[in-house]
Design a protein around this nucleic acid. Sequence first.
DNA 1: TCTGGGGTCCTAGGACCC
DNA 2: TCTGGGGTCCTAGGACCC
Length: 406
Amino acid sequence: MSRTILHVDMDSYFASVEQQANPKLRDRPIVVTGKPTIKSVVAAASKEAKECGVESAMATWKARNICPGLTLVPGNPDRYEWITNNFFDILRAYSPRLEPFGVDEAFLDVTAKMEEFQSPLELVEGIKKRVEEEFGGWITCSVGIARNKLLAKLASDMEKPDGSTRIRDEEISEVLEEISLTELCGIGSRTERRLNRMDINSVPELGNFPEKELRKEFGVNGARLKLMGQGKDPSPVLPASYEEEVKSVGNSLTLPDYKRTPRKALPVLFKLSQKVGYRLRKKGLIAGTVKLVVRDKEFNIKGKQLTPGRFVDDGNLIYSIALKIKEKLGFPPTPTMVGVRASKLRAKDSLPQPLLSDRRKRKKLLRVMDEVNEEYGDGSLYFAAQSGAEDLLPSVGEFKRPGDLE
DNA sequence: TCTGGGGTCCTAGGACCC
DNA sequence: TCTGGGGTCCTAGGACCC
């Protein structure tokens, strides 16, 4: 029996959430960015901003240029997470087989639910009505309906915002003829280029290509690619809760021009390490592996990781491990980005508690620091020792207000 | 005025153990 | 005196997604 799979995608998600939260932003072109500076990039654009041509991932200066009067809004991750949880709860009422895909999308297998409805579209109308009731019409979603995840995802993109699109089985081959390779989720620009080199330039060509040759070029992925070319996707909708097992926690930052030297990058790395440590503690996790990532002037990314044989959740330790890695990896003369990522995570309480009171004091100290930083903002309080960059930290008598430190 | 920041998964090779 | 094959862990790098 054929399955009925939905892909539900929130429209202009972060921007809609901000407009819902703040009436002053409604009906106006806004973009949500990481930091509201001209140097950053658009994370989400409101539909008013999209109308003037603003797209996500566009540099904010460029968005400003094509859309005068654009308002930049800093993101509020906690708010998005909260709304996302409400959103997923609505969907779960229709089927427990919900697979979150990013913060604002999910696949839903409603095959079993179809007996109760005349058509999938009727079910989708129900979902949309619930979403509207919940969020006052300010946050809407677009839904794709098809026999598998690949096609449902494709369909949800076809009519936006607030659309419902169904790809019926008999329409599949026609749809596949009309789309480009990269419109299939899983084929990016690199894969497209490799396919083009094999003289595969359309989705049907991919579907008809000999599997053996695809395997030769792409390994096990070759078989999957061929199926994609035929609009097939046997993968199940895997139910998982939204908060479920994070695999890694990392932070990175593109350096402003004046910090693009190894020496000036170190304090940034130090702060990123503290942030990673803080996030781990907040989640009650400890990490077995630390990875240092740097990007050079040519935008090549290099990373090196280390598994030191102990578990860490302390920014200072993470930083010192990062420094150790740096000795081996070296730093490009002009680093343009630095990042730290912690992986091999496990729950903190899965480790035996330390016996030394010294450790306990340190734990307490870290907890107090976290509270201060929560109150006054990231980086208000941190260790000066071990930063490897003491000279750039405020000296005694030069106390700075939170937010002054960069 | 180039090109953010958060992640995930996969592969391939090397080390090490049995 | 030479040396197979499997399992597991670690690491580097690539590709992709939102």
